[in-house]
C-alpha cells in the first residue's frame, strides 16, 4: 500500500489489512494531527485499509 505523506514523500507500507490509525502509528504519526484520504475520498481513522489502496496524509499542524 502506498502512503503519500507529502508531494515528494511516498512510503510503501506492507500490510494486508489494518486500520488507518494503525498505519499512521506505524509511520510515527499522531492521528490527531492529520487527515487521511483513500483513493481521493476522505476516510475516518477506524477504516480498514490495505492491499492496493493509496492513502494521502494531510498534515495540518505546523510549528509556531
Amino acid at each position: 500500500m502506498k502512503v503519500r505523506l507529502s508531494p515528494d514523500r511516498i512510503e510503501d507500507v506492507a500490510v494486508a489489512s489494518a486500520t488507518v490509525e494503525d498505519v499512521l502509528l506505524m509511520l510515527g504519526i499522531n492521528p490527531i494531527e492529520v487527515i487521511v484520504s483513500r483513493n481521493g475520498a476522505l476516510i475516518p481513522e477506524d477504516t480498514m485499509v490495505g492491499g492496493a489502496d493509496e492513502l494521502r496524509v494531510v498534515r495540518f499542524v505546523h510549528g509556531g
Partner: peptide
C-alpha cells in the same frame, strides 16, 4: 480495497463517514 468505511451514524443516512 481492504474494507468499506461503513455508514454515517445519523439515523436513516446511508452516506459513508468521513
Amino acid at each position: 480495497m481492504a474494507g468499506e468505511t461503513g455508514r454515517c451514524s445519523c439515523p436513516g443516512c446511508t452516506e459513508p463517514p468521513i
